[in-house]
Nucleic acid binder design. Structure first.
Lengths: 138, 138
DNA sequence: TTGCGTGCAAAGGTTTTGCATGGCA
DNA sequence: TGCCATGCAAAACCTTTGCACGCAA
C-alpha cells in the first residue's frame, strides 16, 4: 500500500478528467489542454498518473483503430466499469455506460452459437449518437 | 480505379493471410513469419499492402489494449465484414463473425435508451472462447 | 526526514513517408 | 513503355524507463 501525495500536476490532470467526464481522451489531449493553460507538465507525468488511475479503477483504457494513441475514459463514480458494457460514439467519442440487461438473451445466444462468454467490461459497442447524426457530414 | 499488380511480396503476404484465416495478427507477425521463411521483405511493403486490403474490405483492422500494435483479421470470403458485428476471444484472438440478428431488439433498445445507432462493422464483442476457458490460468 | 512524484533525457517500438529503383502488364 | 510496387532510409509518433532532484507529509 503506497501513500498518495497531492501535487500540482496531479491535481491539474484530475481537474481535466472531471471537466471531460463523458468523453474519451488521449494522453496528448491532456498535454495540450494543460500546457495551453499556462502550466507546463511532462508527458511521463501524464502517463504515470493515467496508469495509476487505471489501476485504481477510475479510468478505463482502450484503443481505437482510427486513433493512433491509447484512449482513456473517466468514470467519476468509481462505477465498476469493468463489470458493464460501454457504447461509444465513433464521431465525438462520447461514452455511454450500458446496463448489461439490455442484451436480453443475446449473451446466451452468443454462448450457444459461437461458444463465447462475453467479457462485459471489455466490450464496447460502437455507433453514432443522435447529436452527431444530426450534423452534416464532413 | 488503380490497376493491381501481382508481385512476389504481395503474394507472400496474401498466402500468410490465408494460412491464418481465423486469428488476428500484427504487421510484425507477418514480417517474422515471412522473413524466417527465407524471403526478405520490408516493413513498409507490409503496411502498404495491409492498408490496401483493409480498404478493399478483405481485412478488418482493430487495436487491443494489451498489444502495442494494430491487429488485423482476414476474412477470405469478401464477406462484407463492415456490415456485421464481430466477437473476439481476448485470450487467443480468434475472431467470430456474428449474425447481426443475434442482437434481437437490443439495437432498438440502445437507440431508445441511449440515443445511439450501432455501427455493426466497428463493434467487437470481447469475451473468452470455450477452448481458452478450458485451459488452466497462467 | 522519508519516500513519493516530477522533469529531463534517452530509448524502444510501431507506423508513415519521400525517393529512386525495379518489375508487372 | 508506363505505371505500380518495393526497398531503403529517415522521420514522426506514442510510450516507457532510469535517474537525480524537489516537494508533500
Amino acid at each position: 500500500m503506497k501513500a498518495e501525495y497531492k501535487t500540482k500536476p496531479r491535481n491539474a490532470i484530475i481537474e481535466y478528467l472531471k471537466k471531460h467526464a463523458d468523453t474519451r481522451f488521449t494522453a496528448r489531449d491532456i498535454l495540450n489542454a494543460i500546457n495551453s493553460d499556462g502550466e507546463e507538465l511532462d508527458r511521463s507525468t501524464i502517463y504515470r498518473n493515467l496508469e495509476r488511475l487505471c489501476k485504481d479503477g477510475q479510468l478505463v483504457k482502450y484503443k481505437e483503430s482510427d486513433i493512433n494513441a491509447t484512449c482513456y475514459q473517466y468514470s467519476e463514480e468509481h462505477c465498476s466499469c469493468h463489470e458493464h458494457m460501454h457504447a461509444r460514439c465513433e464521431k465525438c467519442g462520447k461514452v455511454f455506460h450500458l446496463d448489461n440487461k439490455i442484451l436480453g438473451d443475446t449473451a446466451k445466444k452468443i454462448q450457444s452459437e459461437y461458444g463465447l462468454d462475453i467479457d462485459y467490461g471489455k466490450t464496447v459497442i460502437v455507433g453514432i449518437c443522435n447529436l452527431c447524426k444530426g450534423k452534416k457530414k464532413a
